[in-house]
Design a protein around this nucleic acid. Sequence first.
DNA 1: CTTCTCCGTTCCGGAACCGTATCATTCCGG
DNA 2: CCGGAATGATACGGTTCCGGAACGGAGAAG
Lengths: 117, 117
Amino acid sequence: MAVHLRPGEALRLWQDVAVTEARAGRPDLSMRQAAILLTIYLEPPPHTIRGLAARLNVSKPVITRALDMMGALKLVSRHRDESDRRNVLVKRTVEGALFVERFGDVIIACAKEPTTP
Amino acid sequence: MAVHLRPGEALRLWQDVAVTEARAGRPDLSMRQAAILLTIYLEPPPHTIRGLAARLNVSKPVITRALDMMGALKLVSRHRDESDRRNVLVKRTVEGALFVERFGDVIIACAKEPTTP
DNA sequence: CTTCTCCGTTCCGGAACCGTATCATTCCGG
DNA sequence: CCGGAATGATACGGTTCCGGAACGGAGAAG
């Protein structure tokens, strides 16, 4: 299941994807924000602010702010944990799932055929 | 030379790299900034502000600001084009080359064995 | 009930970034 | 020589983000 990737290919792939996303004029996510979004969509729930902060080794306000931003874009949603009302559970949305899926398509397309401008 | 990558692998790879970079506490580059840096280091010179702006489909000030930031980190350097002094040529630096190379290593490592925390 | 701990949010001053518009310098054609 | 085009930098007003500290609500322990 390991992916075989050589140095030149790895960097070229990253560049192609970054350029494609930049050109598309989509919201310019930082590496941190991407890490948060992908963690929510790729790792099994539940996701809490505390847990995400520990997973990414950043402070809690960083997570709160990122969720504010992504919430405004409807990429994630927040719900109180009714079993322990101190917690906030971060949930996925349809829009977010589409966004992530589309992003995956961009990566695969760039991996398949290097963009030659 | 095409890289074979399936949907799940592509997103998982991106997440692993993003999380690794976030945890490392390194400068949190946005997708745009990454696109600029990698374009400078992977595509053949010369690189001008105008050219980079057109390549990424963004405004010139975006490039100028990104270069200001990366210049402060010594990842790139600027030089007047002596043959046409209106142009500024963006050049690579030793530090920048190391930064990009190390980033490539992270990608390859994440591709090789998925991080299982 | 009181206290202590845990969780997420908000506040604060400062920094970075955005898009648009404008500026200074340089080149070039008439 | 002179006016226009091109290039990169800068000014401006507004938004977002940062790290660290403080805060309020909710559970746990006594």
